[in-house]
């Protein structure tokens, strides 16, 4: 089981901030493919990965990052702090 979090317009498009998912995905990219296959709203949110950033266990990483042992994955647009 892994917690998947969504922020900003990704959260709005998918319609929820967080969900717990049963997955065997080996990498973030594999998890994205599983999510896209679920429902149209996921396919829409993940249609352009270049517009998204990902964090695994609260560290920024890449879509090819492994998920072995990960507790939490978060998807969000590029950050706009400051």
């Amino acid at each position: 089981m892994i917690d998947v979090l969504y922020f900003a317009w990704v959260r709005e498009r998918i319609g929820l901030p967080k969900e717990r998912i049963e997955t065997q995905a080996a990498t973030v990219a594999d998890l994205v493919e599983e999510l896209k296959a679920r429902e149209e709203r996921y396919a829409l949110a993940f249609s352009d990965l270049s517009a998204l950033r990902v964090a695994v266990d609260q560290d920024l990483t890449d879509f090819d990052a492994p998920l072995a042992g990960a507790r939490e994955v978060a998807f969000f647009p590029p950050m706009t702090g400051g």
């Binding site: 978060a74 969000f76 706009t80």
Partner: peptide, 18 residues
Amino acid sequence: KSRAPFWKKEYREGAEDW
């Protein structure tokens, strides 16, 4: 600005935009 996870949303008359 680009490495801390904050996202700004602006509200204007009849519109809201990230």
